[in-house]
Amino acid sequence: MKINFLQSGIYISILCGLAACFNTREPAQPSSATSWISPTEQSILLDNFKKSVLELNLNNYERCLNKYLIFSPDRNLSGNNTGVFQTWTTVEELEYLKNLKARTVQTGANAFTFSNEQTNFLTADSLEYTANYNLFVYHQDSSYTATHFVGKCILSMHRNSSSEWAISRWQDNRTDAQTPCWTDLKQHFISP
């Protein structure tokens, strides 16, 4: 059987076209939500929360919070600055983190740990989590020199209809008169 020149050209064109389908490409960069795990357990929610704070990941941070979050600042500070925290909602919570992120170079040096953790289940779908926190945030805001924050947080968590846990209430308490607490950080970065 004789194949003519035209048929040979068609076969070669088809083979080249098929080979082009299998060219490699640069891998896509991971999205900012790749570290998120569905918080079907409160421990997963706490891991997500810690990672979102360390990474200053606004999307994941927001996913950790109930949209009707109630934040209660440290009592000693809130008496002097009631206007800042009087109407604090999830909107302000995200705004402070956004401002902090804009003034922080991502070096991987930030650190965040909980200690002396206690969990008190109120119902099958709600609990109160209490822990001391130790937070280092290396921001670049020269008007605010504090980078180390310690205190005690009381987080109320609830499971929603999708069986995912979220933080609905957050009480911050100062534990060291010499070291700022998380309330101080929020107060500065809500309107730096």
Rank of each mutant, 00 (worst) to 15 (best):
D184M: 09
L54H: 00
D172V: 00
F49P: 02
R63W: 09
N110H: 11
V150T: 12
Q86L: 14
S156A: 05
I10C: 08
V150K: 12
N76H: 07
V105D: 12
T119Q: 14
N76D: 12
S78P: 00
Q171N: 09
T147F: 02
D141L: 09
R169M: 02
P27D: 07
Q178M: 08
T104I: 09
N110F: 10
N80L: 15
Q118M: 15
P30S: 05
A20Y: 06
D74S: 11
V91E: 15
L6N: 12
I190S: 09
N80P: 00
S38K: 15
E92G: 05
A109R: 14
V53K: 07
Q171A: 06
V150H: 03
E41T: 10
N134A: 13
V137F: 01
T24H: 08
H158F: 04
I3Y: 13
V150N: 06
D141P: 01
I37P: 02
A166D: 05
T40Q: 15
S52Q: 03
L122Y: 07
W182L: 15
N23W: 04
V105I: 13
C153D: 11
Q42A: 14
R174T: 00
L100S: 07
A19H: 00
H139A: 03
T107P: 06
T183L: 11
D141E: 15
E164G: 02
D184G: 05
T130Q: 13
Q178D: 11
Y96Q: 12
Q106T: 10
W165H: 04
N60I: 05
D141R: 03
W88V: 06
K2D: 12
Y11K: 14
T107F: 11
F71W: 06
E41N: 14
T87F: 14
L46I: 13
N57G: 01
F22S: 12
T113K: 15
G17H: 05
E92L: 11
Q106H: 12
K98G: 09
S13M: 14
V84K: 10
S163K: 13
V91C: 11
E93T: 11
C21H: 00
L155C: 03
F136K: 06
A131Q: 04
W36D: 03
C64H: 05
P192A: 10
I14H: 04
Y11F: 15
F112L: 08
T82P: 11
A33Q: 09
L69A: 05
L94Y: 10
W182F: 14
S72N: 12
E62K: 10
